[in-house]
């Protein structure tokens, strides 16, 4: 279990990294926290010709709040998101989600940009970005592009990012008044890849959802922004309303079978998550019917 030989370059600037990526294209891989890349290389699932290590690009690291926008550098590590007071204040969904990401040793190295660029459909942060309406900023030879998180994830390990571009940062809107969130995932062991998970961001006014973004993960080839959520907005939620939303969710999702769960189980667990989210977000224990609707 040793990686095949590869060339290594430690990028001295974003410009330098982009030059290397331009020269090597998809024969190069960007090394950030290395928590997915290194195992894949050691298993020889991938054998890049060149590793572009961006670890020293300090400009890509850090969290800044400007007006109504939280900007997070791509190299910001999971542990820094977890302990950041700014994130806890302005994007508490992220703080909660991070504690489900693997284990401390991995969170100490893994980065936000790495997780988003890797785009594992079972991972937490891509779903959070969609739920939070984030904008993902990428830079190439021709300058910067801003991509809505909902447009960024294209499939299993596939994103809008080209092999010649670098993920620079993300921007999140600051959580406003009436904003509430819910995060939960079902995993066989704490820190495992989720079998089914939900990142939810909502606005609640007088016990009514005025906005509800339900983003399911590990139930499709990318984070799924559920259309079924629209059935719960601007309406008094009754068990029947929730049941209709669960049914709609079941029809909308097209999960895969794997060793941990069948498609039917994933669909079932997604409905449980929907019911639990609605119950928790509205503080209505009576709605938690376990997805039996």
């Amino acid at each position: 279990m040793k990686a095949a030989a590869f060339a290594y370059a430690r990028a001295t600037s974003v410009g330098n990294a982009l030059e290397l990526l331009k020269a090597y294209g998809d024969r190069a891989k960007v090394l950030s926290g290395g928590q997915s890349l290194m195992p894949a290389m050691n298993l020889r699932l991938i054998s890049p010709e060149l590793i572009v290590d961006i670890g020293e690009l300090a400009e890509l690291r850090g969290i800044a709040v400007t007006g109504s926008v939280v900007r997070i550098g791509a190299l910001t590590r999971h542990v820094d998101l977890l302990t950041s007071p700014e994130i806890a204040a302005h994007a508490p969904l992220l703080t909660e989600a991070i504690s489900h990401v693997a284990h401390p040793a991995i969170r100490n190295r893994g980065t936000l940009g790495g997780s988003l660029a890797h785009a594992d459909p079972a991972s937490e942060l891509p779903a959070c970005m969609v739920a939070l309406n984030a904008t993902i900023i990428v830079r190439g030879q021709d300058g910067e592009r801003r991509v809505a998180a909902g447009e960024f994830f294209k499939g299993i390990y596939e994103t809008d990012l080209s092999a010649r571009e670098l993920l620079i940062s993300v921007e999140l809107p600051v959580a406003g008044k009436h904003s509430v969130h819910f995060f939960h995932e079902f995993a066989r062991r704490h820190g495992d890849y989720a079998i089914a998970g939900l990142a939810a961001q909502a606005m609640v006014e007088r016990d009514i959802f005025t906005d509800l973004r339900l983003v399911f993960f590990a139930v499709g080839d990318r984070p799924v922004l559920a259309r079924a959520a629209t059935k719960l907005v601007n309406i008094t939620i009754t068990p029947a309303v929730l049941a209709a939303a669960c049914t709609a969710l079941g029809e909308e999702l097209d999960p895969q079978d794997d060793q941990q769960a069948s498609a039917a189980m994933r669909r079932h667990l997604a409905k449980v998550l929907l019911a639990r989210a609605a119950s928790a977000l509205l503080d209505r224990p009576d709605l938690n019917a376990g997805g039996r609707a």
Binding site: Q260, S262, M265
Partner: peptide
Amino acid sequence: LTPQIILTALGRI
């Protein structure tokens, strides 16, 4: 005793 087995035994999936 996986969740899949238990849910199946309960007739939930």
